[in-house]
Structures are given as C-alpha cells and as structure tokens.
C-alpha cells in the first residue's frame, strides 16, 4: 500500500510538471498582455516600461527559467490585475469552490445512493419509473438554463433567495441546487444499474436463503458491492466541480476558482491562471489517490 501510494505520488508529480510546462507556453500564445492592460493610446515608452517591469521582454526561455525557479519556492508571482500574490488569490477562491463542491457532492452521494438502491429493488415499479424519468431529465438539462430559470423564478419572481453573491446561508441554496441536479441524475442511474446486477447475484440469493431481511440485503450485502463502479463516476463528477463550475459560478457571481480562472484568462493574468491550474490539478490528483484507497477499503480483493 505504501509503495503504491509512493508510486502514485511520483506519477502525479510528473504529470503536474508536464502540465505546468504546457500551460506556460500555451498561455503565451494568447497574445500580448500590454495590449489589454494599457489604454489604446498609450505611448510606446510606457508599453516598453510595462513589459520591462513584468519581465515580458526577456526571451521566452528566460521567462520560463525565472518562472520555474519561482515555482520551486511556490512563488507563482503577483497577479497583474490584483497586485497581490497569485497563489493567495487562487487559494481564497479555491476555498469557496471546495466548500461548494463538498456540500454539493455530499448531498448528491447520500440521496443518489439511497434513491438509486430503492429504485433498483423494484425494477419497473412506480418508484423506479418516476426516479428514472426525473434523473434522466436532470442529467440531460443544461445547467446554465436551469440556473437562469431558477434565478428568474425563485429570486426575481418569488423573492425567496438572493440572485447572486455570498454571505448568508440563503446565498448557497441556488448554486448548490443547480449543481446538484446533473451529478445526482447521473450517479443515481449508475447506482441503480450497479445495484440491479448486484441484487441478481449469487451471494444475494444466499442471503435470501439465510433469511436475511430486505433492508440489510440492499444496504449491507448489495451496497458495498454496488459502490465499486459508482465511486469511479463520483470521482469524475467531483473533479468537474473542483475545477470550478465555471458557468454556474459566473451566473451566481460566486467567487470560486472557476470564475477566477475565466476572468484571469480574459485579462491575460498569466500568474493567476497558472496558479489556479496548479492548485486544482493538485486537488484532483489527491482526490484520485483517495479514490484508489477507497477501492481497497471497500473490496478486500483489491490490494496494492
């Protein structure tokens, strides 16, 4: 197990380095930041001064060298827009995104697992049909549309919740609810499918022959086996949320990492973009390792 974790950590570090190199050069292809930052009628001298100040005049390879040596010290440089260290801005935004992702995924997992398992118990029953219908609708509805409709309905017309921003508990309700719908539909379907095949398995037959009640058959014998394929999908969906739910964060004016990243890309604030990519990548690598550990915890046949 320890050597497995070591290997995974090294593999993750290598991919991370590759990612950093790729992103640095790709972001330099998007154009000259001076054109964006300075007024159209700015003089050549002031443009030159700006370039000199931010090291944009050095050859690319020198810029990259400076960048890497800074990185080793976890110094991503300052944000051009915000005049604060890029990493600070990113970590602040990431904390918001992490909270949003954690709350949403916890709700999704608990509800999808329970509802999906019960739907699987009576395949083709009324409960199964209703949940299948709504989960499919949820999984296929575009979230920007749901977000806008929700704002119009619940904030503008009914006035129950604020339209955007953060601050009170009420501010969280709409973003969480909108982000909830799609992963809920998807994971519910995976739980249901996985549970149907598990409930048809030979060991469930044994449990019935032993006289085990229905509830432990589903939630003891069934669930732990059914969760194995589900975890993979959960990881995938959680990764999407950690990356920042760009559209939803933008619509609700939620100060998460997705919104920060989009803003920084538009403003060519390279150091922030890089720091944001770095932080979310690390988070996703950590989460994948946690998922691998979870596999081994759930299934004693998996040993690394």
């Amino acid at each position: 197990m320890k050597s497995f974790l070591g290997k995974r950590a090294i593999a993750s570090a290598i991919s991370l380095i590759g990612l950093i190199v790729l992103v640095f050069f790709l972001s330099r292809l998007t154009g000259d930041p001076t054109a964006l930052y300075l007024p159209v009628d700015a003089s050549l001298e002031s443009r030159e001064q700006f370039r000199e100040l931010h090291g944009l005049n050095d050859p690319l390879i020198v810029q990259f060298g400076t960048y890497v040596s800074d990185l080793v010290r976890f110094d991503f440089g300052d944000s051009i827009r915000r005049s604060e260290p890029a990493l600070d801005a990113v970590l602040r935004a990431f904390a918001w995104t992490l909270q949003l992702a954690l709350i949403t995924m916890s709700l999704v997992i608990v509800t999808a697992v329970i509802v999906g398992s019960l739907a699987a118990f009576h395949v083709g029953g009324v409960f199964d049909r209703i949940t299948t219908f709504f989960s499919l609708v949820g999984a296929s509805a575009p979230d920007f549309w749901i977000a806008i409709v929700a704002i119009v309905l619940f904030s503008v017309n009914l006035g129950w919740v604020p339209t955007s921003g953060t601050g009170t508990l009420w501010h969280w309700i709409l973003p969480v609810a909108v982000l909830f719908i799609r992963p809920f539909g998807l994971i519910l379907q995976v739980v249901r499918g996985s549970m149907i095949s598990v409930l048809g398995s030979a060991y469930v037959k044994t449990a019935r022959a032993k006289g085990v009640r229905n509830r432990p058959i589903i939630f003891v014998h069934g669930l732990r086996n059914a969760m194995l394929p589900v975890i993979t999908v959960i990881g995938d969906q959680a990764a999407a949320l950690l990356n920042g739910a760009v559209v939803v964060e933008t619509i609700f004016g939620f100060p998460g990492v997705g919104k920060l990243m989009i803003d920084s890309i538009l403003q060519r604030d390279f150091s922030v973009v890089l720091a944001a990519i770095f932080v979310t990548a690390v988070a996703i690598f950590v989460m994948n390792i946690l998922i691998d550990i979870l596999y081994a915890v759930l299934d004693p046949r998996i040993r690394y």
Binding site: Y203, K205, T206, A209, K210, V212, R224
Partner: peptide
Amino acid sequence: LNGRRIAMIFQDPLSHLNPVYTVGFQIAET
C-alpha cells in the same frame, strides 16, 4: 423459515459468498 428451519447451499461457493465480507460475519449473519 429460511435459514432457521430450511437451509440451502449452492453449486459455486465462490460466487455464492459475498466477496467483501469476512466469512465469520457471513456465518454469524445466519
């Protein structure tokens, strides 16, 4: 009645035992 008065064993014991629980748990569960 199942398990208490009438019990059953099957052809392929590997697939009829739950792979993720200990055998002790599964015997005690009856």
